[in-house]
Design a protein around this nucleic acid. Structure first.
Lengths: 341, 341
DNA sequence: TCATTTTATGGGAACGTTCCCACTTTAGGC
DNA sequence: GCCTAAAGTGGGAACGTTCCCATAAAATGA
């Protein structure tokens, strides 16, 4: 029976029970266990177990300044991409002995700064941020305060932090190359509002610049997906019904767009393959819809792990910081029927 | 310029800057702001802003015993159902001034108890748990220690805590009723190993008991989905190829099963509708696959919110606890082509 | 007018740790 | 065999709060 149904056992009670000093108990649970004699170790171990002792992490971080907490801001937790990255982040944190305090901002700058504030009050030792668009002074303030910070996927103006994400130009190039190779000639690039995220801008800009190089023509369509699943059918229908025999294809800037566009195409009765469809972000269901939807998969877990690695590295080289690093991962092409004419 | 590029500002520095006592500053940031004169409030506010002060939550919880933290254990963070519930939980926490420390156990009991341990060390004031199967003594220990605890979806033997989840019998009844009404006669119920979760047991048991009442025959198939996407095609093929003209249908116990089964059916070239397919858990893509997959949607956000509500209630009525409550939500039927012959 | 309450403020002791130092004992070097 | 070093242990002061108390001033009541 592990005793005491009420309240928490303290280090002092363990010390008394083990006939040792609190210092020794502290050493036992800290990283100086080796300094204790075998015998004392034994006494403390059994006393602690008997009493059901758990060091109070709050007290620990107060004294030592180590909260052992990493904070994460996720723009949209219902986006499978975000969750996959978060999974990687959490694993890496745990491997380094940290816990993850993850907050969902629902793409709302107000929630973002509120959460940032909370995370600061818990004295997180590092921050992984999938920020909303607004070039946030609060972020730079965090860095100035000395908290290591990594930006995920999206860079933020005038915030000099490490950035981890997809190699966006390469992703677009791969998409264009694939679509060109499969014989599509006229493209429509569909994206959420680019102002909100640098990665969206990068992708869109690259799309425009490289079309010529692949002998393609194309244009971009910006869809605000706020709220419902609604998406304007007419803009897409107009593109598809445009006269001319050149094979047409749609390129979706991310998973959310791919979902919305697939819905629209079904509503319009479009046959996939004949009309090309391709998306960035791999999702569970992409292989299930009709002939399968071709995607560019992001190495989400790796991105998450890399983010934490950056954090840990900065933590170790705290004094006189190096310039921000940018780490870009290669996407993986998963060809399916939706780009097979 | 919010001053001090290094380290954190303390309450004492603010007090000095505002020509006030630390007690007054503490009052200002606590819930006794009203007791201070307008003038003093002003001085403190501006001093705090000038210095960029954020109360240290670690110190706060150490002294006051309020960590303002709720812990959550999620069995599988890559399951959209879990994420949706988590979203509800987080919203509700924030509304009550709590932050959420969410941990993913990847269905691994070892990680579960490790995380439980960590959460305890942060002195979380409540715990929302989507537990793995093992009837965990650790859980009861948490309760005994006085931490309110809510079980999500799955009950755990010999742990007397509140349980929030789906009305499983009703869900099965609705499914059977719908399938019978649509003319299917022979059913195959497909589930993950029921030992791991009470909800799985409930659903399966109900399925077996109520078949007769709807004039149906049927049997159950248990699939271990660990690891890859692999799923034994042959068991399902055997069911489908069984002689007899009675229309057949498959009922999937959760979203993960629905995904795996849909993959299998595509591989087998089965036409949905002709062969019925229905699943518990609504997913993004269910309306996209072929004629659309009929589902029973769980009110995930509501479940999440209810869990936190239970926690808050227990927190307020700490002394002399009431018996565990069980809250069960009704599913919503979303009929689609996969159950239309 | 003076005792009494109320209002506004501040000092100091905790909360449960860690960590610096100091002390004792044992081992090592010559 | 004595001096020094190392190993093993413990006491006490922080860490940044909150909260109990005490105080001073202002308001109230007769």
């Amino acid at each position: 029976m592990p005793a005491r149904s009420t309240r928490h056992v303290t280090i002092l009670e363990v010390a008394r029970e083990a006939r040792a000093s609190k210092t020794s108990v502290s050493r036992y649970f800290g990283d100086e266990r080796e300094r204790l004699s075998r015998e004392l170790q034994g006494r403390i171990a059994s006393a602690a177990k008997r009493l059901g002792y758990r060091p109070n992490q709050m007290a620990r971080s107060l004294k030592g300044g180590h909260s052992r907490l990493i904070g994460m801001l996720v723009a949209d937790i219902r986006n499978p991409f975000s969750v996959a990255v978060m999974h990687g982040v959490e694993q890496a944190c745990r491997a380094s002995g940290y816990s993850l305090l993850a907050c969902n901002t629902d793409n709302d700058p107000a929630q973002e700064s509120a959460h940032l504030s909370v995370l600061a009050s818990y004295r997180v030792e590092g921050l992984v941020i999938n920020a909303t668009g607004s070039p946030h002074g609060a972020l730079q303030a965090v860095i100035d305060r000395g908290t290591p910070l990594v930006l995920l996927d999206r860079e933020v103006d005038r915030v000099d932090a490490d950035v981890v994400g997809l190699d966006n130009p390469r992703a677009i190039d791969m998409a264009l190359e694939h679509l060109a190779e499969r014989g599509y000639r006229e493209l429509l690039y569909i994206t959420e509002p680019p102002e909100e995220a640098s990665s969206r801008q990068r992708r869109m800009a690259r799309f425009q610049t490289r079309l010529d190089d692949f002998g393609l023509t194309g244009e971009s369509l910006c869809l605000p997906l706020t709220g419902g699943t609604g998406i304007p059918h007419d803009a897409i229908a107009a593109f598809l019904n445009r006269p001319g025999a050149a094979p047409k294809a749609l390129l979706c800037a991310n998973g959310k767009i791919t979902l919305a566009v697939t819905r629209t195409l079904q509503a319009l009765g479009v046959r996939l393959g004949e009309t090309g469809l391709m998306g960035i972000d791999e999702l569970d269901w992409c292989e299930l819809v009709a002939p399968g939807i071709t995607t560019l998969a992001q190495p989400t877990e790796a991105i998450g792990r890399a983010a934490v690695e950056c954090l840990m590295q900065r933590r170790e080289t705290q004094r006189h910081p190096s310039p921000p690093r940018h780490i870009h991962y290669q996407p993986v092409l998963i060809p399916r029927g939706s780009t097979q004419r």
